[in-house]
């Protein structure tokens, strides 16, 4: 597995919405001070969160096609690992990743660090 590019050291979680409000194999965005954050839901109901900016040319990853635990950027089809934010080879780059968890059908996001 590729490592996440950044790991938070101090964790402060906020509830950002219901899992059901995100389509399977899809994504919704969460507004934040650092810009939109894309929260993805995979076919098997895992959730992931990345800054909504593709490492290539800032494409909105939330608008891509989600497959497995990856998303294909809508602008020029880079493929990004949702877990780590890393671009899949041969492309190189990393989208900032945020810790995210599921509790009782609610999605929690950690913005610290």
């Amino acid at each position: 597995m590729t490592k996440p590019c950044r790991v938070a050291d101090e964790q402060t979680w906020s509830d950002v919405g219901a899992l059901d409000a995100i389509p399977r194999q899809g994504s919704r965005t969460v507004a934040s001070a650092v810009g939109d954050i894309a929260v993805f839901r995979s076919v098997d109901d895992q959730v992931f969160a990345l800054l909504d900016r593709c490492p290539h040319k800032n494409g909105p990853l939330s608008q891509g096609i989600v497959h497995g635990s990856r998303v294909t950027c809508p602008l020029h089809s880079w493929v990004i690992e949702l877990q780590s934010g890393q671009a899949v080879a041969p492309d190189q780059g990393c989208a900032r990743q945020f810790p995210v968890k599921l509790e009782d059908g609610r999605v929690w996001l950690d913005m610290a660090g």
Binding site: V16, P23, V39, M111
Partner: peptide
């Protein structure tokens, strides 16, 4: 229509 809006927001 909902899907076009943000899911939520954080500080």
């Amino acid at each position: 229509r909902e899907q076009f809006a943000h899911l939520g927001s954080v500080a």
